[in-house]
């Protein structure tokens, strides 16, 4: 007597193979779904905004008249924010990563800081906004100025920079620091002259990605209270400002009042996306160009 009836197996096998092919197709469609939405989003934004995007728009001042409105103020504001975010996150982020990877003794304290950083990475950005409002704007009495916004965004993206810098430092092969110690170099000389230069491309790539996150952040800025009014261009860290995402936010909200505002928002989105695209290209370029093969 046979336990396996080959005819039945054969018949079932065909169904099983067919199921496999059908599901494979569905899985592929799912993967493409996100990309299709992405394409629709981009096409939609570009078709709405491209006609409004010209040199006058980029270099113009804010105005309630859609035909005259420009975003130079927002571009300057975003640039000023970055002038705070870049040095602050690099300094604190790389410093923390060096401490955790090269100086801290493995153990409870190191784990504690690492857990803390991963928790911070999961805190919603709006909560950072409230922290910035309470500490920088009110307690330290900066007001809703560039410095307050920049520091808030710095704290927000700090975990990204720390983790990226940690990974970059960990990827530097041990034999390089051994060679340096073998020459009689001190620990800090080895860190400064061998480990950090070798980790630099990785650190920069991570920082640029963190920066692009900061550039697009809106929620913390709304909490800090960025004015939607016509304000003078920022000229220092202690001036009020507006930023590209805030401009998009206000124009989107008011699109139900003045329908052209939607096109202005779309045009501003194009500027923002192009900026992000450029930043990411630089990151990829750095990663490919300066990656050392040992």
């Amino acid at each position: 007597m046979k336990y396996v009836d080959e005819a039945v197996v054969e018949k079932r096998m065909k169904a099983r193979i067919r199921n496999n092919s059908i599901l494979k197709f569905i899985f592929l469609l799912s993967t493409l779904f996100g990309l299709v939405v992405l394409a629709v989003l981009l096409i939609r934004v570009f078709s709405q905004g491209i006609a409004w995007l010209d040199w006058d728009f980029i270099t113009g001042r804010l105005s309630t008249d859609p035909d005259r409105a420009g975003i130079l103020g927002a571009i300057l504001g975003t640039s000023w924010l970055m002038l705070v975010v870049i040095p602050v996150t690099l300094f604190i982020g790389v410093g923390t990563a060096i401490y955790l990877e090269l100086y801290a003794k493995p153990g409870r304290f190191q784990n504690f800081i690492a857990t803390n950083i991963s928790n911070l990475a999961g805190v919603p950005s709006i909560v950072y906004g409230l922290l910035g409002l309470t500490i920088f704007v009110r307690a330290l009495e900066f007001g809703n100025v560039v410095l307050a916004g920049g520091l808030t965004l710095s704290l927000l993206v700090l975990p990204i920079v720390i983790v990226a810098a940690q990974e970059a430092i960990r990827a530097v092969p041990q034999f390089l620091s051994e060679a340096s110690y073998g020459m009689g170099a001190t620990k800090w000389q080895t860190v400064k002259k061998i480990i950090l230069p070798a980790a630099l491309p990785g650190i920069l790539t991570g920082s640029i990605l963190a920066l692009s996150r900061a550039i697009g952040e809106t929620a913390p800025l709304t909490v800090i209270g960025i004015p939607a009014l016509l304000i003078p261009f920022p000229g220092s860290f202690f001036d009020t400002f507006t930023a590209l995402p805030m401009q998009i936010y206000y124009w989107t909200l008011d699109a139900s009042l003045v329908s052209e505002y939607a096109y202005l928002a779309a045009a501003t989105i194009i500027v923002l996306l192009v900026l992000l695209f450029l930043l990411n290209s630089v990151a990829i370029f750095i990663r490919n160009k300066f990656q050392q093969r040992y």
Binding site: P173, F175, L176, E178, A179, S180, G182, M183, G184, I194, P197, A198, Q292, Y294
Partner: peptide
């Protein structure tokens, strides 16, 4: 004063 040469060549990048 006591230099070292390692198993695997390890020049700096």
């Amino acid at each position: 004063q006591v230099g070292m040469v390692f198993q695997k060549p390890n020049p700096f990048p």
